[in-house]
Write a protein that binds this DNA or RNA. Structure first.
Lengths: 195, 195
DNA sequence: CTCAAAATAGAGTGTATACTCAAAATCCAC
DNA sequence: GTGGATTTTGAGTATACACTCTATTTTGAG
């Protein structure tokens, strides 16, 4: 008697696996370059060097490919805390800067979707859950470092920091020459108005 | 001899003027509610209670109606300075808060377009010019109030303030219960990190 | 009231989209 | 090599879109 490994899963040939990777890459590039609207099935297939039938042999729907790319991007934006120690606000900000400058393709996808797709469908739900998790994480760091703040105030400041980072990242999206890292560090290190 | 008033302009019936207003209103509402993509010709016509033929009797193109609404929104976001005096950063921030809380429909259009339409076509060009004008205006106010800053530093801080305001407004767009005014005032009045 | 101009209706055009399907080509364990 | 499973093709379907066109209705100045 012979039990095949991975019982229940379909056997896959190498060709299909490579094609799948090409399609995902093409989808990621397009989402970052032209956004959700411009990422049509034809555009994906043209860039991946594939016909529509091959796409639908590997993905049930166009949204499947988009979701895989977007969920990866969401996951990439906040890495796990270093070791088991909770992170500081400084570390969180530097992690975001590293994300934007180190993986610009993925960051572009993240921002484009956060922006254009956050209001509709399952994409929007993913984004909202992600946002709330981020606010909580930033708020915890802020509360740890400013013992005088209550929960509400920490959360308010976390939202402000995240709004600033998102806004600056959006400016970078519109103008790749924009010095995102410099502005982001300045934003959290320097008070905005004189006192 | 008889010279008609408004020589050269087409005579207009009242019905057409009212229809035009209904179409513009419908377009504004839809842009704010469902964004650029969701604002289809059919959606506009359904909401305005009009058939496609009537729309094209008044507008050459769908984009014409959209552009009229968007340019109004862009114009509404930064009002002229009070009297002939240049404005302070505080006044600029309060003006933006008043814009978001006082004309939420228009603000929603402004944000949705800044976000989804800023990367393509004439809409994007309008938005970019508008953004540069805004940065310059904020930078001038900041330079006036902080004599120690050179031009580059004032502009960097202006970009940070605008990024924060935009980011917070975007959060309000996703969650209407978000207390935008409170966060915006906190953002410019309180240093983000302890010193 | 009259009648030309203006406004409207509604079917129709062309194009782009996501997606399907049956047949042909390719793969790879045996 | 062989043959069944997998992958690929490419024409085809259904739908939604912006926009057009002609016939009809409505308007309002004289």
């Amino acid at each position: 008697m012979f039990f095949p490994e991975r019982k229940g899963t379909l056997a896959r040939y190498q060709a299909g696996i490579r094609t799948e990777a090409r399609i995902i890459d093409a989808t990621r590039e397009l989402l970052g370059e032209v956004g959700l609207d411009g990422t049509t099935l034809k555009a994906i297939c043209d860039r991946a060097g594939v016909r529509a039938g091959s796409f639908y042999n590997l993905f049930a729907t166009k949204e499947d490919a988009v979701l895989r790319v977007v969920k990866d991007a969401i996951r990439a934006v906040d890495p796990h805390p270093a070791r088991d120690a909770p992170d500081s606000l400084h570390e969180l900000v530097e992690a975001y800067i590293a994300f934007v400058t180190g993986q610009p393709d993925v960051a572009r996808v993240y921002l484009k979707i956060a922006i254009s797709g956050a209001t509709n469908g399952s994409l929007g739900d993913s984004m909202k859950r992600h946002h709330h998790r981020r606010v909580a994480r930033f708020a915890a760091a802020i509360a740890r470092e400013n013992s005088g703040l209550d929960n509400g105030e920490s959360e308010a400041r976390a939202e402000i920091v995240l709004a600033t980072l998102s806004g600056l990242a959006f400016m970078w999206l519109l103008d790749p020459a924009f010095d995102f890292a410099h502005r982001a560090r300045l934003a959290v290190d320097v008070p905005l108005v004189a006192h």
